[in-house]
Measured scan of single mutants.
Amino acid sequence: DLRKKIVDLHKSGSSLGAISKRLKVPRSSVQTIVRKYK
């Protein structure tokens, strides 16, 4: 699940930009998912 991957990467200390590059999703999507998770 993409959300879980993003949250896991964020927990392990990756920046939003790094996560978005790695998973090839827009940075804004990463930000939204991380914000919802918090």
Rank of each mutant, 00 (worst) to 15 (best):
I19A: 01
S28L: 08
L16R: 03
Q31Y: 09
R22K: 13
I33N: 03
L23T: 04
Y37I: 07
L9G: 01
S28F: 08
L23W: 00
R22D: 06
K4Q: 12
L23Y: 06
K21S: 07
G17F: 06
K4H: 10
R22Q: 14
S14L: 15
V7L: 15
G17W: 10
V34K: 02
S15H: 03
I6T: 02
K24A: 08
K11W: 06
I33E: 05
L9F: 06
R3D: 06
S14A: 15
K36W: 14
T32G: 11
K38I: 12
S20F: 00
S12D: 08
R35P: 00
R3W: 15
K24D: 07
A18S: 11
S14I: 15
G17Q: 11
K5V: 11
Q31K: 14
G13D: 01
S20H: 04
S15D: 04
R3I: 14
D1R: 13
Y37D: 03
R35M: 08
L23V: 03
K4A: 10
G17K: 13
G17H: 15
R27S: 04
K21G: 05
R35N: 09
K24S: 09
S15T: 09
A18R: 07
G17N: 15
S15Y: 01
R22M: 15
S29L: 15
R22P: 00
S20L: 03
L9D: 02
H10C: 11
V7N: 04
S12Y: 07
I6W: 02
R22H: 11
L9H: 03
V7F: 10
V34I: 14
H10P: 00
T32Q: 14
R22I: 15
V25I: 14
K5W: 13
G13F: 03
K5I: 13
K11D: 06
V34W: 06
G13V: 01
S28N: 09
V34D: 02
K11T: 10
L9T: 01
G13Q: 01
S15M: 03
S20P: 00
R3N: 07
D8V: 10
R35I: 06
K36P: 00
V30I: 10
K11I: 13
S28V: 08
K11Q: 09
D1S: 14
D8A: 14
I6Q: 00
P26N: 08
S15Q: 03
K24Q: 10
S28H: 10
G17Y: 12
S29Y: 15
K4G: 07
Q31D: 07
S28W: 12
H10I: 11
D1F: 14
H10A: 07
P26T: 09
Q31G: 08
P26D: 06
G13H: 03
R3S: 10
L9K: 00
G13K: 04
L23H: 00
K11M: 12
D1P: 10
V25T: 05
R35K: 11
P26I: 05
K4P: 03
K21D: 06
K5T: 10
R27Y: 14
H10K: 04
K5P: 01
L9P: 00
V7R: 06
Y37K: 03
I6E: 02
I6G: 00
H10Y: 15
S20N: 02
V7A: 08
K5H: 08
V25P: 00
V34T: 04
K24N: 13
R27Q: 05
L2H: 05
K36D: 09
S29P: 02
G17S: 14
T32W: 12
R22T: 13
K38Q: 11
I6V: 10
V30F: 01
S14H: 15
S14D: 07
S12P: 00
S12A: 13
A18Q: 13
T32L: 14
L23D: 00
I6F: 01
K24H: 11
K5S: 08
V25G: 01
K4W: 11
I19E: 00
S28A: 10
K24F: 06
I6R: 01
L2W: 10
